[in-house]
Computed example of a mutant assay.
Amino acid sequence: MAKPRSKAPTKSIDIFCKQCQQPLFKYKKGGKGALVKCFKERITKDFTVTPCVCPNCDAVFARETLIRGAPAYKFIGGKVWFK
């Protein structure tokens, strides 16, 4: 299966915890679709202390996984939002 594009997209988004509005990541997102997964290589700024756990409210918002051979976070539905 194909790997994600090596060149990062130009559009940058901020990802927040839905429960406490704490910023989690700054991320280079490609496309217009929903935020389902987040490739680790595209994260430009990481505000979390432990992976997949909100530093403010300790809510688990994602799971670590491999997608197309690249390490990524797969978000749990309704736990995060972005702008």
Rank of each mutant, 00 (worst) to 15 (best):
L24D: 04
Q21R: 11
F47V: 03
K28N: 15
F16A: 02
K32I: 00
K37R: 12
K45N: 11
T44N: 09
Q19N: 12
T48I: 07
I15R: 00
K18N: 13
F25A: 06
K29D: 08
C17G: 05
Q19D: 14
K29W: 01
D46T: 13
Y27P: 05
F39M: 11
C20H: 06
G33I: 06
T44K: 11
Q21I: 08
K26G: 11
A34K: 02
F16Q: 08
G33K: 02
K29S: 05
K32S: 10
G31M: 03
T48D: 07
T48A: 10
Q22C: 14
F25Q: 08
V49W: 00
G33Q: 00
C38T: 08
P23N: 01
R42Y: 10
L35C: 05
F39D: 02
C38G: 10
V36P: 00
F47G: 06
C38K: 05
G33W: 04
I15T: 10
K18M: 13
G30T: 06
E41D: 15
T50C: 08
G30F: 02
R42T: 09
V36E: 05
G30N: 04
Q19W: 05
V36G: 06
T50R: 09
K45S: 14
V36N: 06
G30E: 07
K28T: 13
R42F: 08
Q19E: 15
E41L: 11
Q19V: 10
A34M: 04
F39P: 11
T44F: 09
Y27F: 08
L24F: 02
Q19I: 10
I15N: 04
T50D: 15
R42W: 09
C38A: 09
V49S: 14
G31F: 04
A34Q: 09
F16L: 00
F47Q: 07
G31I: 00
L35P: 01
C38S: 13
F25H: 04
C38Q: 06
F47P: 13
L35W: 06
Q19M: 11
K29T: 03
P23H: 01
P23Q: 05
K32W: 10
Y27S: 04
P23W: 00
D46M: 03
K29M: 02
Q21A: 14
I43D: 08
E41T: 12
F39H: 12
F16I: 01
K26C: 15
F47T: 09
K37I: 15
T50A: 10
L24M: 10
K37D: 07
E41A: 14
T50N: 13
K18L: 08
T48E: 09
C20R: 07
V36L: 09
G31N: 07
V49N: 10
K32T: 05
K18V: 09
C38F: 01
K37G: 11
C20Y: 12
Y27H: 05
